[in-house]
Design a protein around this nucleic acid. Structure first.
Lengths: 176, 176
DNA sequence: TTCGACATGTAAGACGTTACATGATTAT
DNA sequence: ATAATCATGTAACGTCTTACATGTCGAA
């Protein structure tokens, strides 16, 4: 059910089209919830069927028309109820950890190469997040409400990537 | 495809029944790959069809017979190939972060309560992991190969839970 | 006599991935 | 010319979740 709510969370902040949403799920929102454009379009149809969002068709010249989605009042309420319903921490499913668990069946070089690959990926994401922090969240105290909360998720992202980075380095050292 | 490989990784370490596997996915293996017993039984059938594992029926008295699964040579090879195929970091999907992103639409108490709930959950898991470390991994250097690699995944778990814990505390402070 | 552990499964539906499909505009 | 961006979808397939289903043994 949470894709629906991730979409509501994003649309409440500001209405947009499915295409725009897909881009958000490839950036800001995507930092904590990933989804493909196909998933998003399908979910938007369902949300509209439930009257949690409404679509306004925007006619455009020179490019395809688009549907601007907005959260309805019942959608807002739905989002509120979901937030108030306690949830458990997300269970982990991580390929790299499976690989390490069985790492002794492979040769060391393979494992080290994969660790380096992941180290780099996490390093890059960390840079992206830190840039974002610099550009948009200089003074967390003086931010409007919405941005303040969004900043808290960015803090999580920074911690998360830093943590993976350090673990990759630690494990690489231990294996050498 | 990774559930299959998580099962192979666990069976390579030591053969067991579907029931036992389900328990492992509720503990040790479950620390980095979660799966229900239904998923496991279904996947075991597929793995057997592919001849990546074989089942030996163990007749038991007083309790149902069970199937003891072992990884075949082609299963071993399959696992090796999978480990050698590079993969990307797992995309994040986390309910709590969606809730925080839209946290400004809810009242502060709701959010704080949820944060406290998660803080406790992560605290508990961290304790479990640290106990395990104390009990089984006192001298990482002198461990057999297999255990050494498994220890590396435990290190990740400890980092992961610590990280969430600290973030929950940090955010709670910022919201007060 | 009731509950938890042992042991394995089916069925339906929700959710996610990959590939296919269309078609205009703008920049290189 | 070619590719990227804008814009929205369908279809097939694969995976995961939830609920249902069965039956024995040992302990409280």
């Amino acid at each position: 059910m949470a894709l629906a709510h991730a979409i509501l969370a994003s649309l409440v902040d500001s209405p947009c089209s499915g295409y725009d949403l897909a881009k958000r799920f490839d950036g800001s929102v995507g930092f904590f919830w990933s989804a493909s454009h196909q998933q998003i379009y399908r979910e938007l149809s369902k949300l509209e069927d439930n009257d949690w969002i409404t679509a306004e068709i925007i006619l455009q010249e020179g490019r395809p028309d688009k549907k601007l989605y907005r959260v309805t009042e019942s959608g807002q309420q739905q989002l509120n109820e979901w937030i108030a319903t306690p949830c458990e921490p997300t269970p982990i499913k991580d390929d790299l950890l499976v690989k390490l668990f069985a790492g002794y069946v492979a040769d060391r070089q393979t494992i080290l190469a994969e660790l380096e690959h992941h180290r780099k990926a996490h390093q890059e994401r960390l840079s992206t997040y830190k840039d974002l922090e610099q550009r948009c969240f200089q003074n967390p105290q003086q931010l409007p409400q919405a941005e303040k909360f969004q900043y808290l998720t960015l803090l999580n992202g920074i911690r998360y990537e830093t943590n993976w980075l350090v673990w990759c380095e630690e494990v690489t050292q231990l294996l050498n």
